[in-house]
Nucleic acid binder design. Structure first.
Ligand code: FES
Ligand code: FES
Lengths: 134, 134
DNA sequence: TTTAAATGATACCATAACAGTATCATTTGT
DNA sequence: ACAAATGATACTGTTATGGTATCATTTAAA
């Protein structure tokens, strides 16, 4: 039961690293030296971020990736959305989304409260924030 | 990313049903008629609860299950523990539990806050509570 | 102009968790 | 004896997770 998967976590680390070198193009090879992440996996992650418009890429020798926008405009939730889909702790709970008990189920209400809290906590987090804090 | 799996959810429903008929032995067949849960699956769930000491069973004709203790003493967390293991939204995040970034990672702190909140919300919930509320 | 360093695009793979099913054995009330 | 119930256990299908592996393409620099 985890809130954050490996993809997302790795992405956060890589983006933090890049945020500290803004506008500098960083290659996967470089990144892998600092962050201990398997190369091909990190590569896939960065390509995904590129397709999602969070990174920009430059091909060829001396190429690599850089942030597509200021680190303060890259939200943790953007990454979660990319790698994990919508943030839902609820997802109640029957084949094709229709749970008969929705109206009566009080468990559901409690889960919703938790989800709301989690969202409120995570929503404001940006890469800039995370970099600043260390 | 769900907090509660099907097992747990089904268990909650079944236990609520049984809580309303305290000390009455209820068979899986009966339960399945009210709750829309696949029979063999529910059976497995109840057997597990039996082994966990949450239910008592009676074999043979007219047999079935009943609560092993008052519904106010059966906590949602008991069920979560049985079907999902420890409640951890964190589980950081590296092969054999040792994440190098633990000290510096500020993401972690945020997740911990959320986890604490979730626990505080779910901890007091008992079957009795859930029955009462509908 | 060749070469090497980089990404692009895809396909593949291994493991585990999740959500069940299926069987056979045993107990027990009638 | 029989049928209704649980006990025990093994099996199965699907999806998510956490990756690898390949081949193609771009590009800077020798
Ligand atoms: S069981 Fe579906 S809403 Fe709670
Ligand atoms: S990445 Fe391991 S504690 Fe945050």
């Amino acid at each position: 039961m985890k809130l954050i998967t490996r993809d997302t976590d790795y992405a956060v680390r890589a983006l933090c690293y890049m945020a500290k070198r803004r506008d500098e193009v960083v290659s996967v090879t470089q990144l892998v030296k600092s962050l201990k992440i398997p190369q091909p996996f990190l590569r896939k992650i960065l390509q995904t971020l590129n397709q999602a418009g969070i990174l920009e890429s430059q091909k060829g020798v001396g190429g690599g990736f850089k942030l597509a926008r200021p680190s303060g405009d890259i939200y943790l939730f953007d990454l979660i959305r990319v790698f994990q889909g919508d943030f839902e702790l609820n997802e109640c709970m029957f084949k094709k989304k229709l749970c008969p008990n929705r109206t009566t189920c009080s468990l559901r209400e409690r889960l919703e409260v938790i989800e709301k809290y989690a969202v409120s906590q995570l929503e404001p987090v940006t890469i800039a924030e995370l970099v600043k804090e260390r």
